[in-house]
Amino acid sequence: MSRDYPGADAEARHGSTAHDAHAHPTPATYIKIAVILLIITIAEVVVLYIPSETEGFGLTWFQPVLIPAFLILAAIKFVIVVGYYMHLKFDDSFFLRVFGFALLIALTIATAVIALFHGISL
């Protein structure tokens, strides 16, 4: 699909430039998403306490993967909320590009600052 200008997605879907309306998920879907978010939040806390509570059971190998695990779980929650609750998955791709660009800059700044202050070099 050719998308040469903002709103092209909405126009293609609705046949009019005046509508960036979109088919939102149903309330039942929203509730299922909330349950998934709850499960992930519980998983984050459980993962945190696994190494300290299970040292005697040989699970201390889990410690080094804790930080990546937290980042991945947070990223999943982030994408779900932005995609479904903020409707970015269903809206015109222009909004995704605006948000994605800002997010990319923010992540770049964070990465650079961490590298600079914690002595990580390429």
Binding site: P6, A10, T17, D20, F94
Partner: peptide
């Protein structure tokens, strides 16, 4: 109707 085809408030 807007120049972008998108709602200005939402943009």
């Amino acid at each position: 109707p807007t120049s972008t085809g998108l709602n200005n408030v939402k943009v």
